[in-house]
């Protein structure tokens, strides 16, 4: 193997490590510098072949108001406003990020008309998905960067941080879901 090829080999290995670390750094930066908000969600429970068990999270703010005209793939910025119960709701839907100090989360319209935010998956240890599936109330604490990208900080199951060791008996009946606190009426921003 020539010297150039040796250098190229180890440069590629270094590239792999740098790529992984850059990915980690991007996520860590959002976690450390982003604004922490609490979002209401409803989980569904499938499985990933490569990554194990996970829950798909469908957020309350993912539903666009009827009056908003949108197309699949369109990007929206949602202004987040904290409600009295501590949960953050939608205060407006914008196609461009307004120049404001408010907290905005960036979402993309997926087929079916709901928004996805890149935080729609929560991985759990194998066999513990039932804890989330059977919970009556699931909220997610999310770090939102100034650019609108978000990273999940923690999942709150019935008001408590998700603990995979807290597995309930499988035949225990599921609780009735509590009434969802009304979301702030979103103001419709001009597009």
């Amino acid at each position: 193997m020539s010297l150039y090829m040796k250098i190229a080999f180890w440069a590629t290995v270094a590239g792999q490590i740098i790529l992984l670390l850059a990915f980690v750094a991007y996520k860590e930066n959002t976690l450390r510098s982003g604004t922490s908000v609490l979002l209401q969600t409803v989980p569904i429970d499938p499985r990933s072949v490569l990554q194990g068990d996970y829950a798909i999270l469908d957020y309350e703010i993912a539903e666009l108001p009827d009056s908003v005209v949108f197309s699949t793939g369109q990007r929206f910025y949602i202004r987040l406003i904290e409600r009295q119960d501590g949960v953050w709701g939608a205060g407006g839907y914008y196609t461009e990020k307004p120049d404001s100090d408010d907290v905005f989360i960036r979402g993309t319209v997926k087929p079916g008309g709901r928004l996805e935010f890149g935080i729609d998956t929560f991985f759990v240890p194998e066999g513990t998905g039932q804890i989330i599936e059977r919970a009556s109330d699931v909220k997610v604490r999310v770090a939102v960067s100034s650019g609108g990208s978000a990273v999940i900080e923690e999942l709150l199951v019935d008001g408590e941080p998700f603990d995979p060791r807290d597995s309930k008996a499988p035949d225990e009946p599921a609780k009735e879901p509590p009434p969802v606190a009304p979301a702030a009426t979103p103001s419709l921003a001009p597009k």
């Binding site: 590629t12 992984l20 990915f23 996520k27 990933s48 490569l50 990554q51 996970y54 996805e116 998956t121």
Partner: peptide
Amino acid sequence: GVHLVGQVYNVDVNDSRLMLFWFLGVFPL
């Protein structure tokens, strides 16, 4: 490892960047 990082930070399962990073890291070899 790429998918582990995705798992640690709860990146969406179908996020196309995961396969892209895997490809970019392997293709020079």
